[in-house]
Amino acid sequence: MEPQPLCMDESAEAVIKCYSNMVYRLAFARTGTRHDADEIYQEVFLRYIKKQPVFENEDHRKAWLIKVTVNCSKKLWGSAWKRKIVPLEETLPFETKEAIDLYNELQQLPTKYREVIHLYYYEDMSTEAIAESLERKSSTVRTQLTRARAMLKNILEEDQDV
């Protein structure tokens, strides 16, 4: 995993650079398209620039960005405009068959499972931390993680470490 650097510089520019990949990858995990991830990415950081929130520590900043990313992607999908447009088909950014197969498997999962999988396996967050960020009960997160694993059985069945 790429280490997530702490933002010693709290300027908006530094924060954007610091959390750029985290926000974009979570948005992509939820939406499955770069087109939507682009839009969410802009919205999240525009909100950050506009609100200029103050945090007690870096964990809170990260939790805020995760929460806003999830909310923005929900808002995007729930908007009247989004309901009217044709889903955008786009070229996948992956070069290996392994990545393409994994992406396709993940797209079969419900969104709320994909985001839990992403936060657990990519951001290395505990189920309690995920529950706090997503405003769900820990038991709900654990259930969603279990169901997601079951649905990814084909990928995970040979994976003893998961």
């Binding site: 995993m1 974009y24 990415y41 070069e95």
Partner: peptide
């Protein structure tokens, strides 16, 4: 595998 997949995803 999931980390390798995500390494291709960035703004």
């Amino acid at each position: 595998s999931y980390h390798r997949m995500n390494s291709h995803i960035f703004p």
